[in-house]
């Protein structure tokens, strides 16, 4: 652009201009792609969230109507509660239990064996883990075993039981997702300097007290990353639910991400779908603010 604007002057200054501009060319492909797909999308979603739009007819600007509608929509409210269940479930299994396992693993001799087994489900995608656990929970799988063992009342298709299926899916997702956090915790625990711990042991700290008072505070940086990463991901839970129950029966096991998808692409309410996406984004942004604040501490 600047070349065009500049008056025809000596060849030297022209060359200098080009030299000044060329470094920016390195940014072009990345910036164009990110602007088209990410930044444009963010603004587009923001605008659409204030409209009523089925994707075919003209957009109708309706102000905050979509946001008001949310709080009167029983599907949305149930979906929010389910999302919170997912968030707490994630804090329990892939964070808290992962931490317990990690501490236990650092105390045994065959560390790498345990690490690999717990990490193994992570080599599957959430979709695949969902398919596998669905088949295990289907008629001839685990329910059949329970029936054979004499618990006839337990031999049913658990994924079609409202509310309970959400809990089952949270556990399934924990089975798949515990590995990465576990590894990060183990890395963190192994990196903790030995001196403060030995000093604490000398002073008589042991067992649980040793961990809550000495070790865990030292693990805080990694704990923070794991915690926030897991929180953000749990708010966005989609794949597992999509393949295991598809949000059913009667939309009882949807999370916000699933509700958003269904409103937009099944019910053709692009405006309402965008509003849910916005709400989800704001929630995630608030959480990741804490993560980013730590990541960029000490940055330029």
């Amino acid at each position: 652009m600047e070349i065009v604007k500049s008056k025809p002057s000596s060849k030297l200054s022209m060359k200098r201009k080009i030299e000044k501009i060329t470094p920016y060319l390195y940014l072009v492909p990345a910036v164009i792609l990110v602007v088209i797909f990410c930044i444009y999308s963010d603004f587009f979603s923001l605008i659409v969230s204030f409209t009523e739009w089925d994707g075919l007819n003209e957009m109708q600007f309706i102000g905050f109507q979509n946001y008001i509608q949310m709080f009167q929509d029983p599907n949305f409210l149930l979906s929010s509660i389910n999302t919170l269940i997912w968030v707490f479930g994630t804090l329990l299994i892939p964070v808290f239990i992962a931490l317990l396992f990690a501490i236990a693993i650092t105390h045994v001799k065959t560390q790498s064996f345990f690490k690999i087994v717990f990490y193994l489900p992570n080599a599957l995608s959430q979709t695949i883990a969902g398919i596998i656990l669905t088949t295990i929970l289907s008629t001839y799988g685990l329910p059949h075993l329970l029936g054979v063992m004499g618990f006839e009342s337990l031999a049913k298709d658990w994924l079609t039981v409202p509310y309970i299926n959400t809990l089952i899916m949270v556990v399934s997702s924990g089975w798949q997702g515990i590995g990465l956090n576990l590894i990060l915790f183990i890395v963190g625990l192994n990196q903790i300097p030995k001196e403060p711990i030995e000093a604490a042991i000398m002073e008589g700290a042991k067992g649980i007290r040793l961990y809550t008072k000495v070790v865990l505070p030292l693990l805080k940086p990694i704990m923070l990353i794991v915690l926030l990463m897991s929180l953000v991901n749990s708010f966005k839970s989609f794949d597992t639910i999509w393949v295991m129950t598809n949000g059913g029966p009667f939309r009882t096991s949807e999370t916000l991400a699933v509700t958003m998808y269904k409103e937009a692409f099944v019910n053709n309410q692009l405006g309402y779908g965008s509003a849910i996406a916005m709400l989800l984004s704001v929630t995630v942004l608030i959480i990741s603010w804490f993560l980013l604040r730590d990541t960029f501490k000490g940055e330029e």
């Binding site: 910036v31 990110v34 930044i39 996406a277």
Partner: peptide, 22 residues
């Protein structure tokens, strides 16, 4: 420039699917 490009990781993908689909 860094933040402009890196901002692509901040929003959940639910923000992108409707605009990209359109």
């Amino acid at each position: 420039w860094f933040m402009l490009i890196y901002s692509g990781t901040i929003f959940p993908f639910q923000m992108y699917i409707i605009p990209i689909f359109r």
